[in-house]
Design a protein around this nucleic acid. Structure first.
Lengths: 142, 142
DNA sequence: TTACCTGCAAAGTATTTGCATGCCC
DNA sequence: GGGCATGCAAATACTTTGCAGGTAA
């Protein structure tokens, strides 16, 4: 797992300025083990930086994605970001639809998938969606 | 597999008018065994209907999706549509990144995925991306 | 005839870009 | 001090909605 300092020094070693906002952004993603939409990020950051503008959020999300710090995933509701997984083992995710938290799945289905010899596989996606314990409890309570 | 007439009568039995444009739309998706973006559809339809407007395309895509004729999937590049699979067996897809064609995968990874008892699974997604034979050949030729 | 369909225009929403000022290094 | 970062405003892209006239049933 990556620390905030590692993220920050990765930014500075790539010629990027380490601003307050970027440090906060790193902290936010470091402390969130789930997906965040640009809007989520804007709202969180907005609590600290009153004059914050959406375009800076987008710019920094993009910069951090290009740096490999964040990864971007498309959901039905739109784009979301999370810290790029540093685990070396290839893995997939269970994703909670309530809170967005993710949990790793070690098992990779590709090993057992019969692919015709004339189809050249480039990448694959395996995602399990549902509710984590606490979100399931909340659902039940409503 | 669904025929154009089946699609058309499904529309009419649901109180929808069977217009020329909708018939053409049904034909387009029937003949395309891959994903189409709203833009793809607009361009195809525009060849036949000169005054075509984008909003009608969107409206009809949405109507046909609500009817269960089409299914909608989010890609990195945006929303795309394809004929809803009529196969009764649960299955997944290999998707060609060149032409958008899809091929069924019978194997479902969920059977073999270890899910913690406190995570309540609602749905899952397994997609294999790559190039089909002819698109792989084209890639190689470039 | 009636209700739905269509095109047009405009409004929404999401995201990107140009520019002037400000701040990190 | 120099150059990247930021906020602002505006542009762009994508999608939806209201309305008036057209058309299937």
């Amino acid at each position: 797992m990556q620390t905030i300092d590692e993220i920050v020094s990765l930014m500075s070693s790539n010629g990027l300025r380490v601003t307050d906002q970027r440090r906060t952004l790193a902290k936010l993603f470091f402390e969130t083990d789930g997906y965040l939409s640009p809007k989520d990020v804007y709202e969180y950051m907005g609590r600290t930086y009153s004059g914050l503008s959406f375009d800076t959020v987008y710019r920094n999300l993009r910069v951090m994605e290009e740096l490999g710090v964040l990864e971007q995933v498309m959901f039905e509701e739109g784009v979301k970001f999370k810290l790029h997984c540093r685990e070396h083992d290839h893995h997939h995710h269970m994703i909670c639809l309530g809170c967005g938290k993710t949990y790793p799945i070690k098992f990779c289905p590709m090993e057992q998938t019969d692919v015709p010899s004339d189809f050249k596989v480039l990448r694959h996606k395996f995602e399990v969606f549902g509710h984590c314990q606490s979100c399931a409890a909340e659902e039940g309570a409503q």
